[in-house]
């Protein structure tokens, strides 16, 4: 936590990519997210931290409308992507998800080849014109996910045959391949060993050049290492949101302080 880099690091961009206002989420009668206001900046890594069950995943899934697939889930309030309300009737969630990609907590590669896993997104969105271009996209996505060297000789092998950490990087490659503007990651490293974790963190830092990244994590160190801004959730409320350095070194809310020092969990 005394990492000096934290304070040195600057936030290069300040334009707002996603802005959420008065977001409420209900699962049936359970009120899972209460009145959350968040601004997520472009070309920035934002970390969501908080105790289990506080609604981090729920809020993350609101941003690309994955919650639409849950029948009992109801979302209120406004979430704007580049100033456009993503819950507007005119918005097709499919189109939205092409721009806001997602990596899930549990690696979930398709039961297809490694190549097909990565190629699937570009194919269905018509991002490539021919096989050569597709090959290129697949290679660059796998390189970005730090997986290329491990799988370049067996692109036809099943994606489900990889190790857990490799599978997760494959899922990241799959999400990156469609060049989304925002990448949502729900505890992407919970299944990874420290080496793979370090690789993914490095990757996240690189992705920041092109995307806005939102990452949910239970590891305070990870949040401190990769993010520029951090949001602390507690019991469905957004308790504190600000520069990562400030949250970890000088939290304003006592609940934040208790959590990062290990007293709430």
């Amino acid at each position: 936590m005394n990492d000096m880099r934290l304070t040195e690091r600057t936030v290069d961009a300040t334009d707002i990519k996603i802005s959420a206002r008065k977001v409420q989420v209900f699962y049936g009668t359970t009120h899972a997210i209460k009145d959350v206001d968040v601004d997520i900046l472009d070309k920035t890594v934002t970390a969501f931290i908080g105790p289990s069950g506080c609604g981090k995943s729920t809020f993350l899934r609101c941003i690309n409308r994955m919650n639409d697939t849950i029948d009992i889930c109801r979302v209120e309030g406004d979430i704007l992507l580049d100033g456009e309300d993503i819950y507007n009737k005119k918005v097709d969630p499919v189109q939205l998800r092409a721009r806001v990609g997602m990596v899930f907590q549990k690696p979930n590669p398709f039961p297809k080849s490694i190549y097909d896993n990565v190629a699937y997104g570009p194919k269905i969105h018509g991002l490539v014109k021919n096989k050569a271009e597709l090959d290129e996209v697949v290679e660059s996505a796998l390189r970005k996910a730090a997986l290329w060297n491990e799988v370049k000789d067996r692109l036809d092998a099943p994606g489900t045959g990889l190790s857990g950490g490799q599978q997760q990087r494959l899922c990241i490659a799959r999400a990156v391949a469609t060049s989304p503007e925002v990448l949502l990651m729900d505890e992407p490293c919970s299944a990874l060993d420290p080496i793979a974790t370090a690789q993914v963190e490095e990757l996240i830092d690189e992705l920041r050049e092109n995307f806005s990244v939102v990452i949910v994590t239970h590891s305070m160190q990870q949040a401190a290492r990769v993010s520029q801004r951090t949001a602390f959730f507690h019991l469905g409320n957004l308790v504190e949101f600000g520069e990562t350095g400030q949250i970890f070194t000088n939290p304003r809310d006592p609940r934040t302080e208790s959590y990062i020092t290990g007293r709430i969990g």
């Binding site: 690309n64 994955m66 697939t69 499919v94 189109q95 998800r97 092409a98 990609g101 997602m102 990596v103 899930f104 549990k106 979930n108 590669p109 398709f110 039961p111 699937y120 997104g121 269905i124 969105h125 899922c171 799959r174 999400a175 391949a177 469609t178």
Partner: peptide, 14 residues
């Protein structure tokens, strides 16, 4: 498995 459906929806499949 629902995770496969999530994966497909997550990359923007209809």
């Amino acid at each position: 498995p629902p995770s496969i459906k999530d994966a497909a929806l997550g990359v923007g499949a209809s």
